[in-house]
Design a protein around this nucleic acid. Structure first.
Lengths: 95, 95
DNA sequence: ACTATAGGCAAGTGTCCACTTGCCTATCAA
DNA sequence: TTGATAGGCAAGTGGACACTTGCCTATAGT
């Protein structure tokens, strides 16, 4: 699980998606696409963003809920809470 | 710089190297190789570990000092301190 | 001097990953 | 129903990356 979190955070586009969801939760795929395009000049295809969201969901950093034909995405910061304490406070190594 | 930190943390072998340096600071390249091989069954070449250390140094997570023919590596946790605060919103602001 | 040790440099390889393209399904409004 | 919108699935491509191999430099011990 921590493995997936590090992998999810590795990509700059995914980190920007987290930024957008932190600023405004409950966005749909199209909203996120529009925001990335306007605010960050990222001309990504819808599928590219969709695949990023899938990675973020697999890591637990993003949760989604479906309502009709809309799918809303929410940020979940729980996996981030103790991500660095592994090296700051000596706990046990994970993977 | 934060970009480099996330990239450095993306690889599981590099995270194990950080684990080893957190447990015992000032190790040389050969010591790290031996520890990865014994404790983690990672049969990596010396160059592979050397390249990982270069990535970690570029991120600031590892600092090195040369003494004669030895090069000692130390963990620097400073770049990890506020890595997640970018998305974690506090309900009670920290004045 | 010779030799072993500690490390670096550079090219090559295989694999993973980000992204695209094309087509498909589901929901809602006219 | 027809058409527009929101999203999903799958194959393909280019580039980045982890790792290897081979050769080279520098330091230290004999």
């Amino acid at each position: 699980m921590a493995e997936d979190v590090f992998k999810a955070l590795a990509d700059p586009t995914r980190r920007k998606i987290l930024d957008e969801l932190a600023e405004r939760s409950g966005q749909t795929l199209f909203e996120i696409c529009a925001r990335l395009s306007m605010k960050h000049q990222l001309g990504l295809s819808r599928q590219a963003v969709s695949q990023h969201l899938a990675v973020l969901e697999a890591s637990g950093l993003v949760e989604s809920r479906r309502e009709g034909r809309y799918k809303f995405h929410d940020l979940n910061t729980a996996p981030l809470e103790h991500i660095a304490e592994r090296w700051i406070r000596r706990d046990q190594p994970e993977d």
